[in-house]
């Protein structure tokens, strides 16, 4: 824990807070440019049966009669103190609505990440052991294939094969073990592509390093070389890549939940989109940004501790920023 590290950590933390606040403002702006007047169209919808006084009350309670800047200020100060406002449809706090569906989505996203990691490791480590003659090229083509298949297609294929044909799970019971597992597979396969690509690129790079050549000249076996020399340095950068895939996991769970009929944050988003429940949408999108920024912050802070070869660039000339960190990972992924 050197001084440079602490300054770096403090700077990164400050940046993260700024980005989160700006992300909230950004979503507020996008959501408030909605065409027409969805607020009154929701409230005056005869199906809801609000009387004029009730409508006036709700408008006053949500602060919808105030200027946009005042509304933004209220929303932002509520957001900072953890108050996400009230849903416009169900008249319940947004935080309760989200808390109800969050566990299901966390399970799905966690399982999806596990599947993605497992698959990526199988493919990437496999390229070290499958000889060129016996399909190494095929294995190397996997990440590109995974990237090209939309996750709703994987989900539908899994439902068709394992749900309809083999009868392993029922679509009616989406929280059963098998249904969750297959949903996680559908979510994880596209995510694994990025991780696998970075792993493969790193393994190739490490295998060409001098220390690997030295180890080989000492007569070390392929397996031993891999386990004790290549595995760790090649796998560490994955920490940063995993953090970057969090966004994809969140976005992907929206579709996966729809396909598998699960109740979760994704289905809540869908419901809020169709009913134009703006406070809920605003809250979920900005919470998505919070999760993404925090996970990346943790990854960035952890990484220098895990890999001592990484030097913190201190001084005023060049600060490491959020804009640098991901590009390290994606540059590797894009340009192996």
């Amino acid at each position: 824990m050197s001084n440079a590290y602490l300054t770096y950590a403090a700077k990164r933390l400050g940046q993260a807070v700024v980005v989160i606040l700006l992300a909230y403002v950004f979503t507020f702006v996008v959501v408030s440019i909605l065409p027409g007047d969805p607020i009154t169209s929701v409230l005056r919808n005869p199906q809801n049966g609000f009387s004029e006084e009730e409508i006036a009350e709700i408008i006053a309670a949500q602060g919808l009669d105030k200027p946009v800047l005042v509304q933004l200020w209220h929303a932002l100060s509520g957001f900072v103190t953890g108050d996400l406002g009230m849903s416009m449809r169900s008249n319940r706090p947004v935080s309760t609505l989200i808390a109800e569906v969050l566990p299901s989505t966390l399970i799905l996203a966690g399982a999806g990440l596990a599947v993605a990691l497992l698959l990526a490791m199988l493919v990437a480590y496999g390229t070290r052991f499958v000889p060129k003659k016996y399909g190494q090229g095929l294995l190397r083509g996997f990440p590109s294939l995974f990237l090209s298949v939309p996750n709703f297609v994987i989900g539908l294929v899994l439902i068709h094969l394992f749900g309809f044909q083999l009868g392993l799970f029922r679509v009616i019971n989406p929280d059963s073990f098998w249904a969750t597992l297959f949903a996680a597979v559908a979510l994880g396969i596209p995510v694994s592509s990025q991780i696998a690509e970075v792993l493969i690129a790193n393994l190739d790079k490490e295998a060409e390093q001098e220390y690997a050549a030295v180890a080989r000249s000492r007569g070390i076996g392929q397996l031993k070389l891999f386990v004790s020399h290549l595995l760790k340095p090649a796998s560490l950068p994955v920490v940063t890549v995993i953090a970057l895939t969090i966004g994809e996991l969140l976005g992907g769970s929206l579709i996966t939940e729809t396909v598998f009929g699960r109740t979760g944050v994704g289905s809540l988003v869908q419901r809020s989109v169709s009913t134009q429940d703006l406070p809920v949408l605003q809250a979920i999108v900005s919470l998505g940004a919070v999760v993404f920024v925090l996970v990346n912050l943790i990854a960035d802070l952890l990484y220098p501790l895990l890999d001592p070869r990484v030097k913190i660039l201190g001084g005023s000339k060049r600060r490491p920023t959020t804009s640098d960190e991901p590009s390290i990972g994606s540059a590797k992924a894009v340009n192996p």
Binding site: Q15, L22, E248, T321
Partner: peptide, 11 residues
């Protein structure tokens, strides 16, 4: 750009 990147793409 940081702000745009912080919001999950699909969301």
């Amino acid at each position: 750009v940081d702000v745009l990147l912080s919001i999950p793409k699909f969301l």
